[in-house]
């Protein structure tokens, strides 16, 4: 796409500033997810505390982006690709804000788990964390490089994350049935896994928003979904 500058240069500056804000907000959200997952893996309370505090910066960016978008809509009357990008920015900020909240929740739960015994599915949480982090990184790169194909690739990865979440769900059910003393910690672990799965959903939303902003068309096809835990009963009963 040839990016011809606007006749009104200040508009170009504002569009650039908007993108920079989204990317910086995204960078902090990505770092917070990474730190939250690490605080679970390493039982690192200090890291968890820092992650919880850092969420305020994400919320601040959300407010700044909303202000800038409102201002641009009022003053510039954007059209076509600009309109899609500006409205998209509002949605991206919203998704990143939710991602930040999930990271914060994971950090809080890592503190709660810290007082109980280590749990088994520790191998799956880092794997989910890695998948989610790559999705966030790639979706931000898709925005920075105006690359709709990369956005689509993030979108296509969501089912794999959902499947991983399904297996964590089954595994944790098994532990809790075997030893009820693990229920508290396992319940936290389940929420942590669910939070990571939700973060993946928001990264997928972002991929759709970015694809639409760049191309002007939605990603073709039904959104792939593989989270089936809503229909799952206890293992052993129906297997």
């Amino acid at each position: 796409m040839v990016d011809v500058p606007h006749t009104v240069k200040a508009f170009d500056d504002e569009l650039a500033a908007l993108q920079t804000k989204i990317l910086r907000m995204g960078g902090i959200a990505e770092a917070n997810v990474a730190a939250a997952v690490q605080s679970v893996i390493r039982r690192d309370r200090q890291l968890a505390d820092r992650t919880i505090v850092a969420d305020q910066r994400i919320d601040a960016f959300d407010g700044e982006i909303a202000d800038l978008v409102t201002r641009m809509l009022a003053l510039r009357q954007p059209m076509a690709q600009d309109l899609r990008m500006i409205v998209g920015a509002l949605r991206l900020a919203n998704d990143l804000e939710r991602i930040g909240d999930y990271a914060k929740n994971i950090a809080k739960r890592s503190i709660a788990i810290g007082v109980s015994a280590p749990q088994q599915p520790m191998h799956a949480i880092p794997r989910m964390g890695d998948m989610v982090l790559t999705m966030i990184k790639d979706v931000l790169d898709a925005l920075a490089n105006r690359d709709p194909e990369r956005a689509r690739s993030v979108w296509a990865r969501d089912p794999a994350l959902d499947e991983l979440y399904n297996s964590v769900f089954r595994e944790l059910l098994t532990y809790m049935m075997e030893d009820p003393r693990t229920i508290t910690a396992c319940a936290h672990m389940l929420f942590i896994a669910k939070n990571l799965e939700r973060i993946g959903d928001h990264a997928t939303n972002m991929a759709e928003t970015i694809h639409f902003a760049i191309v002007g068309a939605r990603i073709d096809g039904e959104r792939p979904k593989a989270d089936v835990t809503a229909e799952m009963s206890a293992p052993g009963k129906d297997a």
Binding site: V4, T7, V8, R76, M79, A80, G216
Partner: peptide
Amino acid sequence: FTSPLDQRTQDYVTGRFG
């Protein structure tokens, strides 16, 4: 005004020339 198909339309409606 939201998703024009031609690049020139896009450039014009977004205020890039004209």
